[in-house]
């Protein structure tokens, strides 16, 4: 199977280039794109740099652009892909080396969402109670793996990565807003009322299309817009 892979090591390359590898995926028992990339790294070219950890789609390390779509290399079946398989780093973020991007801006936006439970009431001796219905509101939100596939597929995020929080961070903002145990809802919503943080979302749904966990950041974004609107009237 033929792979065309983005290569760039700033220490030696003047500019990035695409490198072709032909891999016998049967011989090397490759099922997913990650298997093929690790075969290339382990058997042919140790200098290929990428991130990987769990290899089962839960750690979010290996988000990359595969045949034009952002996805996780470890859950992208080779059998579903057309040749040559074109693999590039996630778009819109600075490239550190090869398929490794600088995620710091993405993490800064995540932190801007204050992604931790805020509740200043005295802690009970046991658990805070939460009904199964209230708990259900967190489904589809807490499962985010911070792979950045969504935010880096969003043109609004490409334009304003420093000011627009992007779908991943906004999903987290909403995860705490709807948590019945969190008491900072008003402040959280107030933090989103500037023209950029939330309102640069134009609803084009690239985030929904690429999310490897089938989450729906747009729904969360729209819910927050509704809540802010209701509070303002």
């Amino acid at each position: 199977m033929r792979f065309s892979i983005y290569r760039y090591n700033p220490e030696k390359d003047k500019s990035p280039y695409m490198q072709t590898f032909d891999i016998d995926v049967k011989e090397h028992q490759c099922v997913m794109v990650l298997d093929a990339l690790l075969t290339i790294k382990n058997k042919f070219d140790e200098s290929l740099s990428l991130r990987r950890s769990c290899r089962e789609g839960v750690c979010g390390s290996d988000g990359m652009n595969i045949n034009g779509k952002n996805r996780l290399a470890c859950t992208a079946h080779l059998s579903s892909l057309k040749e040559p398989v074109v693999i590039r780093p996630l778009p819109g973020l600075p490239v550190v080396r090869d398929l490794v991007v600088d995620m710091s801006q993405f993490y800064q936006q995540y932190e801007k969402a204050k992604p931790y439970l805020q509740n200043h009431d005295p802690k009970p001796a046991t658990e805070r109670l939460q009904s199964p219905e209230d708990r259900k509101k967190l489904d589809g939100l807490y499962e985010c793996i911070l792979c950045a596939c969504c935010s880096t597929s969003c043109p609004s995020y490409w334009w304003n990565p420093d000011k627009y929080m992007g779908p991943a961070a906004l999903l987290q903002a909403y995860r705490f807003i709807v948590d019945s145990r969190d008491t900072a809802t008003e402040e959280r919503l107030a933090d989103l009322t500037d023209p950029y943080s939330l309102y640069r979302c134009r609803g084009i749904m690239n985030c929904v299309d690429v999310c490897p966990k089938d989450l729906n950041p747009l729904e969360a974004i729209n819910s927050m817009k509704d809540m802010i609107l209701k509070e303002s009237v």
Binding site: Y116, N119, Q130, R135, Y142
Partner: peptide, 8 residues
Amino acid sequence: HMGLPFSR
């Protein structure tokens, strides 16, 4: 109390 979303 830290916020872990346990099933209920």
